[in-house]
Design a binder for these strands. Structure first.
Lengths: 196, 196
DNA sequence: GACCTATGTCATTCCTCGTTGACATTCGCC
DNA sequence: GGCGAATGTCAACGAGGAATGACATAGGTC
């Protein structure tokens, strides 16, 4: 409170008037906060502050906290990535990723944390169910192909999710030979599910 | 609500004076509510009501919501079960369980939901980390034994968690041959991690 | 340039929920 | 039986946060 200069023009130079941009800014901030703190722990005031916006705007644009959450959720499942996975590298790439720190892939980790939050909140869970089925399981099914697609897809998804959760919970990657073995075995495991 | 006799004394027949019993009742109710709604979503008034107790008692016995949560957490990880798993049946038993409905194992499902809630809340996560390492990972390590224990234990835990999460999210079990294949492959996968 | 709407800000209200302290009652003990 | 501590109940407080409506202003349109 000592810097007069900072306060001089101050009065929060009223944001440029660009609805789309502010909407996007709010959404981006919301995703981060929801991921970090969950639905209840994320405060509209904080989100608004981070977006450089008054909290009342959230209500105007998203119709309240629920609406904002739903919008953020919809924006967080990106199925396009799946179809681009390469059949040869997929298993090894994923395995290597899972062996590292969660915060080495901040973007995706945030998205995943966010989804996990949605899964554990009874009001948002149904919403998530649908999204996951349509935008995650379906692409996986069509990507792996072959026999017993259902069983394999489900098992693959489980392993994938489990690796993510485990990495999230305990962010101390393995080192040395244990790390090598972990990558090797994880890759083998995933590959066997992709192959047939 | 038809039984007049039950209502006779009315005025909420002031609970029997048994500190241990009420403590236990509160704890049981708390575990259910925390599992269902998470830390923030679970309300002390609701928990107290379900335990048939005044909310103020929670403060007396557990020193507040935090204390209650910690107590519930501590009570939710039961490592003893792990060491009793049979090496031969483990993989198949788990696989079959995972192929069923989550609500077929209400007790454990609740416990797991509760832990997942703890994992996704920044204030409770550190607490969980510690508990999981000491009371879940450590027993697993010593149970599987053999080479590369670290890597295998971690992978095993991941798969285990993943199966639980997947089952929780999407509670439609597979049917028919897909179910058989799922069980078979899941069992094989688990067994290979246990064996060596 | 005047008007009108979309956009942004501010102050306030309302509600929920954890917590607290005073009060009531039962039980163990002498 | 009377006293004190343990147990249980009740009412009220206060913090915190979402939602609301009135107000301010930029920017396009005629």
């Amino acid at each position: 409170m000592t810097n007069a200069a900072a306060l001089a023009p101050e009065r929060t130079a009223p944001r440029k008037r660009d609805a789309d941009a502010t909407r996007a800014a709010i959404l981006a901030a919301a995703k981060v906060h929801f991921a970090k703190s969950g639905y209840d722990g994320a405060y509209l005031r904080d989100i608004a502050a981070e977006a450089g916006v008054d909290a009342a705007l959230i209500n105007r644009y998203f119709g309240g906290k629920d609406g904002l959450f739903a919008a953020a959720l919809k924006d967080s499942i990106r199925p396009d990535a799946i179809s681009q996975w390469s059949r040869e590298n997929f298993a090894h790439d994923v395995a290597k990723m899972m062996a590292g720190h969660a915060h080495q892939h901040v973007e995706r980790t945030h998205a995943f944390e966010f989804l996990l939050q949605a899964a554990t909140n009874p009001t948002t869970a149904p919403l998530l169910n649908l999204a996951v089925q349509e935008r995650f399981m379906a692409p996986i099914r069509s990507w792996i192909g072959g026999d017993h697609v259902e069983a394999r897809a489900r098992l693959l998804a489980s392993v994938f999710i489990g690796l993510l959760v485990e990495r999230l919970i305990r962010d101390e990657p393995l080192e040395g030979s244990e790390r090598e073995i972990f990558i090797e075995r994880t890759a083998a495991l995933l590959q066997s599910l992709v192959d047939k």
